[in-house]
Amino acid sequence: MKNSWRNAFLLLLTLLASALRAAAQTADTPEMADTLRQNGKIYVVVAVILIVVIGLIGYLISLDRKVSRLEKEIR
């Protein structure tokens, strides 16, 4: 169980690091991002992405718990 939390954390850390690296490498910002930022809608986009990622992580953790419980029952 402890190993699965570690794997989920490492996966999240890897995804965040790659996203930050990609954001840092863009020299000029796209026009769409400027428009979303000016209208304040960029926060809605970020919030939706965070909700989706948190939901996926929660689903994976619950799925891991169910599989672990079934493995214990089989033994």
Rank of each mutant, 00 (worst) to 15 (best):
Ala47Trp: 02
Arg75Trp: 01
Lys2Ser: 12
Ala47Asn: 07
Thr29Asp: 06
Arg69Thr: 09
Ile54Phe: 08
Ile49Asp: 07
Lys2Val: 11
Thr26Phe: 06
Met32Phe: 07
Lys41Phe: 03
Ile49Tyr: 08
Ile74Thr: 05
Ala24Met: 08
Asn39Gly: 14
Arg21Trp: 13
Arg21Thr: 15
Ser18Gln: 09
Lys66Pro: 01
Val44Ser: 10
Leu70Lys: 09
Gly58Thr: 07
Tyr59Asp: 07
Lys41Arg: 12
Ile54Met: 11
Tyr43Glu: 13
Leu63Thr: 12
Leu60Trp: 00
Ala24Ser: 13
Val67Tyr: 00
Ala33Val: 14
Arg69His: 09
Thr35Ser: 12
Leu11Ala: 14
Leu13Cys: 09
Gly55Leu: 05
Asn3Lys: 08
Val53Ala: 14
Lys2Glu: 06
Gln25Ala: 15
Ile57Cys: 04
Ala17Leu: 15
Met32Glu: 10
Ser62Pro: 00
Val44Arg: 06
Phe9Asp: 11
Ala47Leu: 12
Arg65Ala: 10
Leu60Asn: 10
Ile74Gln: 02
Asp64Arg: 01
Arg37Phe: 11
Glu71Asn: 10
Val46Ile: 15
Ala23Phe: 01
Leu12Phe: 03
Asn3Cys: 05
Met1Gly: 07
Trp5Lys: 09
Val45Ala: 13
Lys66Ile: 08
Asn39Ile: 04
Leu56Thr: 12
Asp34Tyr: 04
Leu70Ala: 14
Glu71Phe: 02
Leu50Cys: 11
Leu13Met: 10
Pro30Asp: 11
Leu36Asn: 03
Ile49Val: 15
Leu16Glu: 12
Gly40Ile: 04
Ala19Met: 08
Lys2Gln: 10
Val46Lys: 03
Val44Cys: 01
Asp34Arg: 13
